[in-house]
Simulated assay, not measured.
Amino acid sequence: MLAAFARPGLAHVRAAALLARFASVEEPKPWLARASAYEVSEQSESLETDSGPTRARLYSPRGIENPPALVVVPGVHRLGVDEPRLQRFARAIAASGVAVLTPEVKSLTEYRIEPFGIATIGAAASALAKRQHVERVGVMGMSFAGGLALLAAADERYRSGIGFVVAVGAHDDLARVGRFFVTNAIPDAEGHTVQMQAHDYGIAVLMCDHADDFFPPEDAAEAKETLRRWLWGEEKEARARAAKLQPASREKLEQLFDKKTAALAPEILRVVEARGPAMREVSPHGRLGALHVPVYLLHGAGDSVIPPTETGWLAKEVPPAYLRTQLISPAVQHVELHGEPTAGERWALVHFMAQVLEEARDTR
């Protein structure tokens, strides 16, 4: 009986240590540090996928034989598995006693959301399960990778290697999110319209992904590279590149750079409508009926890239028997911790992560 009560309590301590370690580059308080005292070894990996070899990094807790295992998939970011916040998060999880594999979804590093990402996630889960000598491992997808992770778990080609899914700041319907970028309004799953200011990052990603739809052939490649530089934070270089384009192309980019995106709205909405079939291929909406593993949903209450209403939709899409937890937290902003959370908000996050750690152990 004591062991039965002690295990959940220890999971909460490990979760608190994990979050403390991720929130700061400094070591957590001594009593928390002892709860996640495993040293972590790191090594580069290469995964075989349908689209060829894929980079990955494995974080292993030392001194644990056959630890629980989790694939953590980064969202849209040019650095992929080298992104510092992702690395810190992976180390924090590994220090709590869980082996972590971070695969690089090439399309997401290039600001494209494509079905190949689903295959990469499936291959990563299969490879990690084989390495850990287990049938299934957990998958945690961040941002747009969260929606892809859910699709992988529902896909008969890949679901045999996936034991549970954690979707953080994920999308349910990519086209709905695309319309939000320019309308600053989005419907929730209860039939209400939620108004909030969209982050201009979303428009830049959308235009970069579909540059051929926004720019003439002679400008499309350079415009895409210009948008990448903008997304990388290289504003001066982006503006210099934009100045070399034809007047109409330059004007579109300058409207984005100067946050005058209202003028772009009609064209963006036309592109979203035209690209509807392709966006449905990478959207969980209406496609999770075959999902039969536990699901944990986490979203930032103020997320202005993928609004938290999307997690409300996902909660309705996941078969009820498999939805474990849905948390909309003010302490999270998109896929990172935010601000100074209240004690209650801290506890909610700790409890969420404790459940995930316990699920990882049970899956093992």
Rank of each mutant, 00 (worst) to 15 (best):
G9V: 09
L10V: 13
A16P: 10
A20V: 08
E27P: 07
P28A: 08
A33V: 02
E39W: 05
V40F: 02
D50I: 06
G52Y: 05
T54K: 08
T54N: 07
A56D: 00
L58S: 09
Y59T: 03
S60P: 09
I64W: 03
E65D: 15
N66I: 13
A69Q: 06
H77A: 10
H77F: 08
G80S: 12
P84Y: 01
R85Q: 06
Q87D: 04
G97A: 10
V98Q: 02
K106G: 04
T109R: 00
A119M: 09
A123W: 07
A124D: 10
S126M: 07
S126W: 07
Q132C: 03
G138H: 08
M142H: 06
A145S: 14
L151S: 13
L151K: 13
A153P: 12
D155R: 11
D155S: 12
R157M: 12
V166K: 05
V166I: 15
R176Y: 04
G178Q: 06
A185L: 05
A185N: 06
A189S: 00
E190F: 01
G191E: 03
Q195N: 07
A198W: 00
A204N: 07
D209P: 05
H210E: 12
A211D: 09
E218L: 09
E218P: 13
A220I: 07
A221V: 10
E222V: 09
A223S: 15
W230P: 09
W232I: 10
G233K: 14
E237H: 14
K244I: 02
P247R: 02
P247L: 00
E251Y: 01
K252L: 05
L253H: 10
Q255V: 14
L256W: 10
A263K: 10
P266T: 11
I268S: 15
V272C: 12
E273W: 01
P277Y: 12
A278L: 03
M279A: 02
S283H: 07
H285I: 00
G286K: 13
L288C: 01
A290R: 08
H292R: 06
P294I: 02
P294K: 09
V295I: 01
L298F: 07
H299D: 12
G300Y: 00
G302H: 11
T309I: 14
T311Q: 10
A315N: 09
K316N: 15
R324Y: 01
H338P: 09
G339L: 08
G339T: 05
E340V: 06
E345D: 09
W347L: 12
A354I: 12
A360R: 01
R361S: 11
T363S: 14
R364K: 11
